[in-house]
Amino acid sequence: MTVWHADDALLAAYAGGGLDQARAASVEQHLTGCASCRAAIAPHADAALIARAWAGTVDRLDRPRTSPFERLLIALGLSPSAARLATGASAARRAWVAGCVLVAGFAIAAREMDGPMALWFLTVAPLAPLTGVALAYGPGVFSMHEVVAAAPYPRLRLVLLRCLPVLPMTVLLLVVGGLVLPGTAGAALWLLPGLALAALGLVAERLVGVQTAIGGLAALWMGGVASARITTGSVLGAFSPTVQLLSSAIVLGAVCLALVGARRTRSFW
């Protein structure tokens, strides 16, 4: 153990840059191993800079982890805080991944069997965006409902942000559908009814609550497909031009309502 310590004048000279190389090097070698001299040099350090660096350190450590999807949204131009709202509380993230895997598995199975399996796919696929909306409101997020309701953040914007994770699922389904169904036109058949169901789900959620809305709409859709099969003899009856037209009207209506609502009363939604 060293018994020699640098005195204050020497430390001041070192800190002020007024020491020749050899002695500065000597002081540095000493400081590396001497706790009491390290403490003694504190008055000669730049306190403001040290405080700033500490604030920066704490800030770095507290920064929440960002998920790949969150980073993707930021890269696409969404502000970091909005991306956080879109993905942060997706407690159902795991369920989401599981859902995607399931759809992919479904597609592979359908390719092997083709025919009836593809029709099943068409029947189930439109429910996916609706399920996505349900997950966006999943139990984890729903538990925060009261706190969210008392916050000034524009309601419509929040709802739309939370539905953003539905997009990758929709794209995946479209791709999978393209692989499964004969002809690309057939693959897109489910898209409009799917989006229409999701839009209806959003509206119904405000009126009857999320569980009832999702359950009711899913039952309605399955009923529609079943009756189409009975009356026209094919599931494809549920994807007739009339249904497609009606669906696009609903989607368009929802978008218009959203835009007008956003402009007139930001908080109504």
């Binding site: 805080s81 956080r84 942060g88 407690a91 984890g140 925060m144 706190v147 953040y153 929040l158």
Partner: peptide, 27 residues
């Protein structure tokens, strides 16, 4: 506002939870 029923999204840390609410409060 502190509601009576308190639910938290699973997976959040204490910091992340308050941070999430802070974003909702337009920070």
């Amino acid at each position: 506002y502190v509601p009576q029923e308190t639910g938290f999204p699973r997976g959040f840390t204490a910091f992340e939870y308050v941070d999430y609410v802070a974003i909702l409060k337009e920070m």
